[in-house]
């Protein structure tokens, strides 16, 4: 069962320089909320930003990770 810490580590290593905070929404280890700040999001549409984060976990989203709620922003500000 994935933990918020594990998700945080995986996001931050997949997107070097990013900062992620991840919480387990239900305590059940399958519904998560991730807030990610990364300069990699610069110039991407919101949907592309979210797909970048979803892409880190591949098939696990929809599998062991039932739900991953995402909020993305760049160090310069929200977009």
């Amino acid at each position: 069962m994935p933990t918020p810490e594990e998700l945080k580590t995986r996001i931050e290593s997949a997107l070097p320089g990013s900062t992620a905070s991840v919480e387990d929404l239900t305590g059940g280890g399958d519904h998560f909320r991730a807030e990610v700040i990364s300069d990699r999001f610069e110039g991407l549409s919101r949907i592309e930003q979210h797909q970048l984060v979803y892409g880190i976990f591949g098939d696990e989203v929809g599998g062991p990770i039932h739900a991953l709620s995402i909020k993305t922003s760049t160090p310069g500000g929200t977009r």
Binding site: R46, I47, H50, S69, I70, K71
Partner: peptide, 12 residues
Amino acid sequence: KLIGGCDIVLEM
């Protein structure tokens, strides 16, 4: 065109 899921729709 795919707009997104719940998070994106609510932000928008």
